[in-house]
Nucleic acid binder design. Sequence first.
DNA 1: CTGAAAGCGCTTACAG
DNA 2: CTGAAAGCGCTTACAG
Lengths: 327, 327
Amino acid sequence: MKDIAREAGVSISLVSYVLNDKNTGRINADTAKRIKDIAKKLNYQTNQIARSLQNKKTYTIGLIVADISNFFYSYIAGFIEDEVNKYGYNVLFGSAYENPKRFMDLLKVMVSRQVDGLILAIPDGAEECISYVQSLSIPFVIIDREFPQFKGLNTVCLDNYRSSEMVVERFYELGCRRMAAIGLDNNLFHLSERNRGFSEAAAKLVGADNVTTVKVAENVLEEQVENQLRAIVYGNKVDSICFMTNKIAMAALPILLSWGIKIPQNLSVICYDEAEAYKLFPYPISYVKQPLKDMSIEAVRFLMETSQSKVLGVQRFPAELISLKGY
Amino acid sequence: MKDIAREAGVSISLVSYVLNDKNTGRINADTAKRIKDIAKKLNYQTNQIARSLQNKKTYTIGLIVADISNFFYSYIAGFIEDEVNKYGYNVLFGSAYENPKRFMDLLKVMVSRQVDGLILAIPDGAEECISYVQSLSIPFVIIDREFPQFKGLNTVCLDNYRSSEMVVERFYELGCRRMAAIGLDNNLFHLSERNRGFSEAAAKLVGADNVTTVKVAENVLEEQVENQLRAIVYGNKVDSICFMTNKIAMAALPILLSWGIKIPQNLSVICYDEAEAYKLFPYPISYVKQPLKDMSIEAVRFLMETSQSKVLGVQRFPAELISLKGY
DNA sequence: CTGAAAGCGCTTACAG
DNA sequence: CTGAAAGCGCTTACAG
């Protein structure tokens, strides 16, 4: 800006006004044009750092996901990026890998970088991070997960309870009367709700004796999925099974395939989350689709309009049950 | 910092020195401890924006990929994030969606945000962006793609020519004598090299008459893949086919499946890029694995050590041919 | 219609 | 061992 001012023979202030289209009414049109031309000639790009320091606004949204290389979060990241761009914002991202300490570190980095808002997928066991982020004056919204023990959190997530009720209802329509679900063994509330929705709806429709629900640990997922699957399919002789997360589905489906189990003749299967991979599976896979785009848009919209300090509360989005090849 | 200084009864300068562990030798240990304690009590986080303005260093790397929701780039993004974190840096990312204008806009945003380095997957037709980024004083490295018409570019990519030679050699070992490849119809050099490597190696081994190579347009990929596949498989009666990008593979495999084609009995198939999805395919899929982690690490390493203004040149990483279920 | 000045929150060379 | 001062590149209220 100093260079532009010198070359145009005006003050830095004036350059600033012109380049930001402020005070346009009172500025000589010729001078304005001259300044703009020089700026273009010099290939001037605002130093956003300096501007941010003055404005106390960085036009940056911090996004902390569990793992950017997981397609669930990379989809979300893509939608969020597209959406914040519409408002002239950019995304600073980080993966916490479900690690509370790493999450806290990322949070502090985002804070020190003065992000204007945060979108957070908070890991299991990071409750103290919630208190911390609440103590900040940065607007934030929690995505995908729920923490009901904290009041007044702005949250965008799936209606998890209802989503697994839908799964059960579909199984029932298909004539299934012995249902199973494999879920993840952790304390994340949204996953408990999924499990609860399944168990309660299934018990009501076919009786608790005909419902099997098991949980597998994340760190030995492959191995436990195989063992549990064997017990459920060959032991309990169920006619339907729901994989409650996409990772479980990706571990379980190849095993069913290797056992020569036919879907849906031998077993009805419904998975959570949309995956391009289902296209490569030789049997039709129904799945619970989360409206990730709508959820992302809502999260961003809230942050952008939060200056009016509105409250979002917990927004639970309805799931959609998709039948890939119609069953 | 002002608050800390006031509470500690010292100057802001001193607080700065202590918090940054500078001049440690000359500072009273007690004073230092007192300042650090107060900082902790006040939950002080440096304002990186102010620091960056002064230091002319933002500790931010700009990453522009084609599409963050594509697993190829989300893997890269994950690796790059992990790696830059080791140096105390963060990642500002953007997806250009293969659109040169969008790419240029993202580039300018990154510039105005004073990123310390750039990692770029430059789209087809964005050559003028290269001149632009070269005119800047920001170190940058191109990832995945090559632009040989520009000299002195620092590039990290696959040894694409050699990779498809390997594919051909594998087909040949398997006894295949009529080979085909489906590639993408654009001008990206790295993809041409893949195609060229395939054509030349195949012509040498089985004669040009026994080699079919076709290209499909990105925007009507699904449809063209189906048509080309029909012509190749039923018309040309090839015994082996290589899908030159992961998108082509994801479009083609379900079609082969629906036609009841058995792999490798009826047709040998090799795809580009590692995809979790292959696990769900009922036949073994061999694929060309790019060492994305090594490539990401190298790109970051170069940026971090570029202060010594070294030259990287074009680093071509060797591909690995993976047989999922050994064929 | 335009400019001088203060200030955003830091860092650091310099003086004491 | 510590502090006053200048400055990073902008913005904006104020004066003229």
